[in-house]
């Protein structure tokens, strides 16, 4: 099929904004650093709750302090059998992300505890570039109002933290081919 428009051979850089003022809000500037504590980026932003399976949270329902954590690397048999790590699994184990002391929280490399509602801080430790873009609303998705109140999605709304590769989707139907139109 011959497509009605042609290849743009010159994929030039479009320079609309000659004005490169670096006047982004300060939170855009700080990189992923686990050190720099990042509060919710913007008071106008709203994040939906973490997408837990029903009954999974609070974790402390089962993991109460009387049950000693098992730090051994092993296959889950008694619970969480559906979890198969496909996320740099050679180098990683559950307790690199989940806190040993407080199972209802995550923890960063430096030990700082993080709520599940802020799991992006954990992801941001290792994926600084994506985190930076996400804070600007460019990786991931904002919805709501372009000029006001916005909603964010957490990283884990799109990426399963245990096997984060984005899952393929079934496409919606292709367009119908135009019927050949005969001139009268």
């Amino acid at each position: 099929m011959k497509y009605p428009f042609l290849l743009s051979s010159a994929l030039g850089l479009a320079l609309v904004c000659a004005c490169h003022q670096e006047e982004h809000r300060s939170w855009l500037a700080d990189a992923a650093g686990a050190e720099a504590p990042v509060s919710l980026p913007d008071p106008e932003l709203e994040v939906p709750p973490p997408p837990f399976t029903e009954g999974a949270f609070p974790c402390s329902d089962c993991h109460d302090p009387s049950v000693p954590p098992n730090t051994r690397r092993r296959e889950m048999k008694l619970a969480h059998t559906e979890i198969k790590l496909h996320h740099d699994e050679e180098h990683r184990w559950c307790l690199d992300c989940h806190s040993v002391e407080d199972r209802d929280k995550l923890h960063l490399a430096n030990g700082t505890l993080v709520e599940f509602s802020e799991s992006y801080k954990l992801c941001g430790q290792c994926h600084g570039d994506k985190y930076r873009d996400w804070k600007a609303g460019v990786h991931g998705r904002r919805s709501g109002n372009w000029d006001g109140h916005k909603k964010y999605l957490l990283c884990v709304h799109c990426h399963n933290s245990h096997a984060p590769k984005f899952q393929p989707l079934k496409p919606l139907p292709p367009p119908t081919r135009p019927a050949p139109r005969t001139s009268p």
């Binding site: 479009a14 855009l28 873009d133 609303g137 460019v138």
Partner: peptide, 24 residues
């Protein structure tokens, strides 16, 4: 809004290599 320096589109224009179709 292209004129709002805090908008997502402005972030893209300033931090990514963008192109348009059929510049010529």
């Amino acid at each position: 809004d292209l004129r709002d320096p805090n908008s997502e589109v402005r972030y893209v224009l300033e931090h990514k290599r963008v192109f348009v179709l059929k510049t010529e």
